[in-house]
Structure formats: C-alpha cells, structure tokens
Design a protein around this nucleic acid. Sequence first.
RNA 1: GGGGGCGUAGCUCAAUUGGUUAGAGCGCCGGCCUGUCACGCCGGAGGUUGCGAGUUCGAGCCUCGUCGCUCCCGCCA
Length: 605
Amino acid sequence: MSAKYHRTHHCNELNRTHVGSRVSLSGWVNSCRDLGGLVFLDLRDREGVTQLFVDPAAQPELARLLHEVREEWVLAATGTVQLRPEAMANRQRATGEIEVAVETLTVLNRAAPMPFHLEDQAVSEDLRLKYRYLDMRRSALVPNLRLRHRLTKSVRDALDSRGFVEVETPILSKSTPEGARDYLVPSRVHPGTFYALPQAPQQYKQLLMVGGLERYFQIARCFRDEDLRADRQPEFTQIDIEMSFVTREDVMETVEAMLAAVMREVAGREVALPFPRMSWQEAMDRYGSDKPDTRFGMELVDITPALATTEFRVFRGVLDAGGVIKAIRVENGGEASRRQLDAWTDTVRLFGAKGLAWLKQAEGEIGGSIAKFLNHTEKAEIRRRTGLQDGELLLIVADRPRVANEALGRLRLDIARSSGPLPTGCFHFLWVVDFPLLEYDEEAGRYAAVHHPFTSPLDEDVARLETEPGSVRAKAYDIVLNGVELGGGSIRIHDPVMQQTMFQALGIGAQEAQLRFGHLLEALRYGAPPHGGIALGLDRFAMLLAGAASIRDVIAFPKTTKAACLMTDSPSTVDPGQLDELHIAIRREEADPEAAAGLVPVERR
RNA sequence: GGGGGCGUAGCUCAAUUGGUUAGAGCGCCGGCCUGUCACGCCGGAGGUUGCGAGUUCGAGCCUCGUCGCUCCCGCCA
C-alpha cells in the first residue's frame, strides 16, 4: 500500500483547486532546470507533465540529489501543490498554473543518456524503430495506441450488441495455393510438412457459419509474405466478420452501423448513412482507381468521342487498337513547368503509359504539346467535354483503358496532394461494388480470383462463368475511406457444385481442389447456410483516424520494409539443433560462395 | 525482381572544383547561475564519413559493388 512510488495523482491532473494539498507523483524526468538558487524539474507520465520545485536554500540535500538527476530518470516525488507567481504560469500546459514543492524525492531508476532526443521530431525512423520503447515515450505513439484501443473496444461493443460472437481461429493453419505468399512453420512431429500462418481466417469463418454460429467476428492477426508499403506490414490486424442468411445489403448495413458507432465513439463524429455506393466500373472510369478518394474532384474525363476521327497518328493508333483517350483538368495548372510535366510523365510511365500529352488554354486559345495535331472541331469538343478554361491544364493519356485509368488516377492523387493538404478531419466512406469475379493472369495463363475463390458471382452473370469468365461480376464489396481500401468482403459460395465450378474456372483441378480445400468442399455438402462477410484493416482504420502517414505509426512494434524488426533484430539465425529437430537443412546460396562456405558471418547492417 | 531518395560525432545537419588537422547546434562531462519551462552562460571530451574495392599525387565528394532505412512499380486470393 505504501510503496515509495504510490501515486495520488497523475501528471496532468493538478491545478489551482489542489493548492495546499499534499500529493505524490511518479514518472520520468522530462527536463531538469537547475538555476543554482532554484531547481525546476518537469516530471512526465503518460498523461502529462507537472513541474516540481526545489529551493536549495531550504533543502540542500534535495538540491544535491537533483544535481545528479538526468533526462529520463524515473522518480517518485511527494510534496505540496503551490500556486506559481502570476507571471510565471505556463498557459501551454494544463498544470501550468501550479507546481509541486518537493518534500521527498526517490530515484526509482537511473537512465543512460538517450540515443536521441525524445523531443526531436526529425529523428530517423530506423533509430525510432530500434528504440521503439523510447519512441513510445514521445507524444505521438502512445496517443495513437490509445486511439487504437478505443477503436478496437468500440468495434467489439458494436458487434456484441448486434449478436456477434468473437471466436479465435488457429494461427497454425494450412497453406493454400491461391493468394499471397504464406509464412510457413515447419512441423517437428511430421517431418517435411508445414503449417502456414493465416493470410486471413477466411475458411475458418466460413466453417463457423456451417457450424451454425451465424454471427462471427474476430480481431484477427493476419500474415502475408509480400513486399511492404506504407500501409502494408507482413503481419497486420483485420476486423473479421461473417454472417449467415444475409445478402450483400445486410452485410453492408451491418458494417455501416458498426462504422457509424465507431466514428461516434472514437472520433466524435456523425457520419451520414447509408454510405454512397459506386460500381467498380464507375470508380475506374471516373477516378481511375478501385478505391477512389472522393474528397476532391478532378475526375477523369473520356475524350475519346471528341477524337473519334482524329488523324493524329499516336491517338489514331491507340483508338484503332481499342484504346481510350482520357484526361484530367488541372485548375491553376497552366503555369506548370517543363520539369513538372516531365515528372508527371514519369509517373504515368510507371503504369505502362507511353507518354503524357497536355493541352492548356490561354485567352481562349488552346496550346500545348499536341495542339498542332488537333483541328478546330476537336479542340472545341475537348473544351466542351472537359470544361477547360483559361489558365487551366489538361493532362491526357491515350492507352488501353486500364493503363489510361490507372495512370491518370495516380496523377490525380499526386497533383491533389502536392497542391496543398487534402481536407483533414473529413471522412468520406464509399462502397465500391460489382467487382469483376475473375481477372486474367497473363503470367499464369489462366483466370485468377479478384477477391478470393469463395466469392459468389452475381446471379444474373452466373451463366457466363464458363463462356465469358472475364465479364462475370462478383457479389463483392469494398469499403473505401478517403481513398484507402479499408476492407472488402463478399457473399460466399455455399453450394458445393458452384464451388467446384469456380475452382474449374480458376484452373484448379478436382484433385488439387480436394487436396487444398477438401475440408471446405465437404463442409458445404452438409447444409451450409447462405453466408457472407467482410474484413476491415484495423491498422489502416486507426491510421486514418489518427491522421498518420503510415500504419507503422499505429503499430506498437512494426517491421521495416525488409520485414525486419530492428529492435529485436529478427528474423535471425537459429541454433543448428533447432533445425535438426525440424528436419530442416539450410541450402548454401550459390550467389555468395564465401558466405555459403561460412567464411563471412551473415550480418544485416 | 525493378526504379527514386537517403546514409558524415550519441542525434539533426554542414563541408566551395577532388586539396592542409572533417565543422556547427543539441546531447554528454566539468563549472557558474533565485522563476525556469527544450532555461541561460563558460570550458572540455567525442569521427573507421555505413561497409568493401577502384580511379587519382590526393577521395566525405568521382566509379563499381554491397548493406541498411524509406517511397513507389511488380507482388499483396
């Protein structure tokens, strides 16, 4: 009870109403200002900072102790709250009007000099990752983790109140051929076999529906051994949901209600329901993306009709090959420099576009890189379709629809982001529906599932599954927030025959289907209810709510883009004995004979 | 797998055309200081310029390779 670090208050609590009270605080030394005849010490805990005050004349032994004290030492202090002199109040802080006149001070722990300034906003990220526990003491990370906690709790409450049951599914799972690369875990007791870490609890949650659970959810850790991005980590968390006896509308309504509750509780915001819905085709046509950011305009305009009879060779070639000519109109773009246009050209080339054409208008006249190839009618028609005005710029890509859309979609985002911050505190939810069911994979020479192989086709498209598979749409839906894919789901196939048909369309033979998905196929035979669900990226959601630039900022211990943990230095080599037990031998890499021969220690850094 | 950016003191950065002993601020160590709040002032220590080759009379700077961090393309059912 009376431990020396017992606290009566936290460090963001005391104000003028506490003056005269005897209090105890514990925390870290944020800074210590020894003025010689006066000593101030800012004590910090997770809630805030309180100034401690010591008068060396009155307490010489305390002053001597404080002389030793350094940044980030851990202290417990007891003293009396006193008002600061009027002019000395710090209005920046909740506790700025008072200070604690110290009576006893205990050093709970010393601290080595910090590897970086905790207050320094410019510290490199690898250093922050190596000393994540110090990074956490700074202002940004802990509030993000607390926000994430509130988010998770709010999700649990919202789903619980709607009859959902939280169920844990196995982490040691089964490898499946479709989808992302698996993280594998070797089996000790079954030599030569492997578990896979789940990319998602997809099959388990469907089996829970067959099991009659009806409403399932899980805050589920998922693992994918693919290359990283600012919004992609090798392990991440999904809000995983599955429901029985539901249509797409039922799932979307449930998710909307949950998201509205979360937005209210976590962000204090009311969002209008239902969320807007847009077909995948419309999203691609208007925004060049299957996750459009609808916070701003600058939509893609199809100017193909204006150029249907063009004799400009480049455009003619594209049109004759079945391509399209699309444009975005950039307000205030008329002044764009050559250098800027070159940079934009590089951007569209990333997506396979051969080039970027541009037009601009000044004093009613259209000029630009391709102006001389267009006749008067074509220019007028382009102006009519795009609304081009003086001082504005038109960026044009002529290519296959997919290339033109994606290139301009990216350009649209880049230009919007570079021409000033996008509206903050603004949350545009959007459903994108009617995704294609299948997509032709050039490399594999077969169709692949756009969502996953358990996704149900639209009823009206089923007939085309075997004749024209590329045109079949899915009972799938993505939820998009501010241009970020927050989650996606679908109504699943619950008919074993349909599931077999789907595997066939994917080029998965009956034998392989049985080997990889036999458990699911069999389960569908025993009275599987119609069911569907969704999975939402918890990390991305937290990132957006926190206004963070990367999901690393809302994950306590994230990994680098090479999937390494700089703090624990994982992955790492293991004891040969461990490998023996797992029946695993490390193959020597040909590329580096010295390292393979063990002449050079393998190091990372 | 590919492309861009970055790598110099504990941290953040500088260093002219390739030229003498690689500097500054903060931090660290020592001292001074009665109203500070990233206190201030004086003094001091601190460097394998990520690593390895090469070019050169001479490399932090140029070339090649390599490692790490990061952004993007591919990839991510």
